[in-house]
């Protein structure tokens, strides 16, 4: 009669052993087989263009959070279709954004914008965004410095 008594190895120990082996396989896979993807991803926040109608002075402020897996450098900003390469004179803040961190920037603009309008902000980074994500565009309101 094929009637096992059980108790050769307890069920709980069997589970622990099985989960340990699985964990080891996963670690081995992540260390030796795959490399983290180099993917640029970010979120733009608190983006506003400030203009002074009297002096004609204008600047943009915004914060970038790096939500990707690599550090990146902001090479340029694009406002509607106008490209402004960074760094420019009078710029405040850093263009290097580390993984998971935020960077705040204030960039003086070459000409003024109409208050009350919205301008589309787009960043050009190094390394660049993937093809699929080309459309991280931040609508930026234009306000008067009060």
């Amino acid at each position: 009669m094929n009637s096992k008594g059980g108790g050769t190895i307890s069920i709980t120990m069997g589970i622990v052993l099985c989960l340990l082996i699985c964990t080891m396989i996963i670690f081995a896979y992540s260390f030796f087989i795959v490399k983290p993807a180099e993917r640029v991803d970010y979120t733009v926040m608190q983006n506003t263009i400030y203009v002074n109608p009297n002096s004609g002075e204008a600047y943009i402020t915004f914060t970038v959070q790096n939500t990707g897996t690599v550090d990146f450098v902001i090479k340029a900003i694009v406002l509607d279709k106008e490209r402004i390469d960074l760094p420019v004179e009078g710029m405040l803040g850093t263009t290097i954004v580390k993984v998971g961190q935020r960077a705040a920037l204030r960039v003086p603009l070459p000409h003024t914008y109409e208050p009350g309008t919205v301008v589309n902000l787009f960043l050009i980074t190094d390394p660049p965004l993937l093809e699929a994500q080309k459309f991280i565009v931040a609508p930026t309101p234009v306000e008067v410095i009060g």
């Binding site: 699985c22 964990t23 795959v34």
Partner: peptide
């Protein structure tokens, strides 16, 4: 999958293991 380049099947295996550990 998105950040560590795991294949979808390995990712499934990984979350199953994590689920098992929480269950235990």
């Amino acid at each position: 999958i998105a950040q560590y380049n795991f294949s979808p099947y390995m990712a499934l295996f990984s979350v199953m293991t994590i689920g098992g550990i929480i269950g235990l």
